[in-house]
């Protein structure tokens, strides 16, 4: 009933211009770091413009994984791709806020569908969509 501990594999799916990354269960730190490296390369080689990270299957996000998510988004942004983190569970969100990690630069969406819709919108920053206006 528990997810396989330390799943060493993260499925990455390409859907048109978007990479869909599905995180599931409990990850080894090394797996998360590997993913961070691989994604940069994939963004460049595949020429995608958006990355959706589905974390609806993740039971906890600690400061390490939080940092990995923030860095993936920052890296992708340098490579001209936008990142949306989708499907964070309420318990995880409450814990992250309590931990002091509000990840202000990160775009978020309720689920992968909403995330895709968000990425299909023109790059011009509008305040429509599941994400807040960008703050400096």
């Amino acid at each position: 009933m528990y997810p396989r501990p330390g799943a060493g594999h993260v499925p990455v799916l390409r859907l048109g211009d978007i990479l869909l990354v599905t995180l599931q269960g409990d990850l080894y730190d090394s797996t998360a770091q590997q993913l961070q490296q691989d994604l940069s390369e994939t963004i460049v080689s595949a020429g995608v413009t958006g990355v959706v990270i589905d974390i609806s299957g993740v039971e906890i996000v600690d400061s390490f994984l939080g940092r990995v998510l923030a860095e993936i988004a920052a890296q992708a942004s340098l490579l001209a791709a936008r990142t949306v983190v989708a499907g964070m569970r309420p318990a995880v969100a409450i814990t992250l806020v309590e931990l002091g990690l509000t990840l202000p630069g990160l775009r978020t969406a309720l689920d992968t569908q909403a995330a895709m819709a968000l990425l299909e919108q023109p790059v011009v920053l509008s305040h429509a969509g599941g994400t807040r206006r960008e703050r400096a």
Binding site: L96, V97, T102, A109
Partner: peptide, 13 residues
């Protein structure tokens, strides 16, 4: 403020 921040992490405003 915490509630607002948590909602935002989930993708809601």
């Amino acid at each position: 403020m915490k509630t607002v921040a948590a909602a935002r992490l989930m993708g809601a405003e």
